[in-house]
Design a protein around this nucleic acid. Structure first.
Lengths: 215, 215
DNA sequence: TTTCCGCTGGGGAAATATCCCGTATTTTTT
DNA sequence: AAAAAATACGGGATATTTCCCCAGCGGAAA
């Protein structure tokens, strides 16, 4: 009996590539590929329950975090291998906290994928040195005592966040920071990523919570 | 020597109307009309210093609050008569706190304007019963102990604010509240007005500050 | 040297937010 | 009963946000 796998990734190409990769291994079988968590859940509710889910973190509709949470609550027997481009702490820790059993960077070598799958089957988990090191970093005093530092925002990004906590538009912020609006666009994207948020509204709320700005 | 007046209002029409009104009174003279606080400050820095400023509260660029604050700090000798459509506490108290010497509703009768100007010249202040009553309201326990109650948000508006503290779009919020997006549009406008904010971002920050939502 | 990466910025497009106009119904006030 | 205020809602215009694509440039690392 082969180990069944579901692939959840909104990037068609990535999903196909993964699928192809997995199918080369005799021990594994791809049940299906879907584009987001919602579709995965639909399939699962129809009884198509895989043993392992390769789960992309960044997806529209229902992202990796939410999906992992749902799986953890509704099908704890399914092993989750998180896939991401991000190598930042927040992503990793977030996924692990939400129930992921392993974390793989999309840039990894094929043999690592195999290794991870084998490990999931045999030991139910797969933690690379990289993940471990990030976890350790998250335990160090700097991070514990200063979650702001853990975001690793640079000076400009800090400034941007503070300015964004206002009625200013991005164009006005660009003015104040003496850079092009495109550059501010970059700051925004970067901060969104690092803080794990999707809109200016939640970014501001995070900034307030972390006391990056006072009220 | 006539008492000199500057009019600050971004509504061209309103500014003209006021100007015309004032010029009917022999004792007063309109030095100039400008559209916002920034322009007023420019004029003042050029030495065109009026004795009284008719100051609209709701303006782009630099609104009444900021302008009043600047005047208070830089030209405390100038008397400020705040003009507003809003009859809510927050507006009034905000302006008085920022240094306004009087507060007039835009819907008032012409003779009231005259009265107000005379009072400013003679006694340096002009407080109508209305303003006083609002101030008294602001002293009552409900308001003192619960600044949230002072906003007088109704249930739907409360719900709206809470839902707005998220990544949800207004359309999604309308869904959750089971009303039309237009209605949510109305909630937004109403809450903006009551909280004295201009954008969703600052509304959220106010909501957090007032602990209408927890982080 | 070459390669890679972070910061900067350009063009364009789609989604959202903001604001304007207005109507109908209901409730409250006078 | 008439007038006024409050509420729900619709069309449409504009501003802003969000997200794509892409390229150069300087420093760090291989």
């Amino acid at each position: 009996m082969k180990t069944t796998i579901a692939i959840v990734d909104d990037h068609e190409l990535m999903a196909r590539a993964l699928s192809g990769l997995v199918q080369k291994y005799d021990a594994y079988e791809v049940l299906y590929e879907v584009a987001n968590g919602e579709e995965l859940i639909k399939h699962i509710k129809l009884g198509m329950i895989p043993q392992i889910v390769l789960l992309d973190i960044n997806m529209p509709v229902m992202d990796g975090y939410e999906t992992a949470m749902w799986l953890k609550n509704n099908h704890p027997e399914i092993k989750i291998l998180a896939l991401s481009m991000n190598d930042n702490e927040a992503s990793i820790i977030g996924m692990l906290r939400n129930g992921a059993h392993g974390y793989l960077l999309k840039g990894c070598k094929p043999f690592e994928l195999k290794q991870a799958l084998d490990s999931l089957v045999e030991r139910g988990r797969y933690y690379t040195d990289f993940v471990t090191s990030q976890l350790i970093k998250s335990l160090n005093p700097e991070t514990l005592q200063d979650p702001v530092a853990a975001l690793h925002l640079n000076e400009r990004e800090m400034d941007f966040v503070r300015l964004a906590c206002s009625d200013l538009t991005y164009v006005e912020i660009a003015d104040k920071m003496c850079v092009s609006p495109r550059t501010v666009d970059g700051y925004r994207e970067s901060v969104f990523q690092k803080m794990g948020v999707k809109t200016r509204v939640t970014m501001v709320m995070e900034a307030v919570r972390l006391k990056i700005v006072e009220l």
